[in-house]
């Protein structure tokens, strides 16, 4: 309740710019599939997706203006998931 009066208001323009950015990234990742990159295609697609997710988290989900604790938790979740994948693949990679 301490922050009730100084709530941050994001302007419509900011959201508009963020949306345009996200759309551009979407078209980039679609465009990349037309270039023959071999196994790199997936890597690029996932990289672009990660950038998009980062933007959605930061602006749409307002993380930029949230407490450090929430930011750390969110980061922790993605790290946790990455670790689960890696550990599971200790099995599948080395069979």
């Amino acid at each position: 309740m301490d922050d009730k009066n100084k709530k941050h208001i994001t302007s419509y323009q900011t959201y508009g710019i963020v949306l345009v950015g996200l759309l551009i990234l979407t078209f980039i990742s679609v465009g990349v599939t037309w270039i023959e990159l071999g196994p790199l295609t997936v890597t690029v697609a996932l990289l672009v997706a990660s950038v998009k997710v980062f933007i959605v988290l930061t602006y749409f989900m307002h993380l930029k203006y949230d407490s450090l604790f929430i930011k750390l938790m969110v980061a922790g979740i993605f790290i946790l998931f990455a670790v689960i994948i890696v550990i599971t693949f200790l099995d599948y990679w080395f069979r």
Partner: peptide, 18 residues
């Protein structure tokens, strides 16, 4: 936004790995 977030990953993994 979460629903959006999930889709952002689903989209390339399902449609763009051609």
């Amino acid at each position: 936004h979460l629903v959006d977030l999930i889709w952002i990953f689903l989209f390339p993994l399902l449609y763009l790995i051609t």
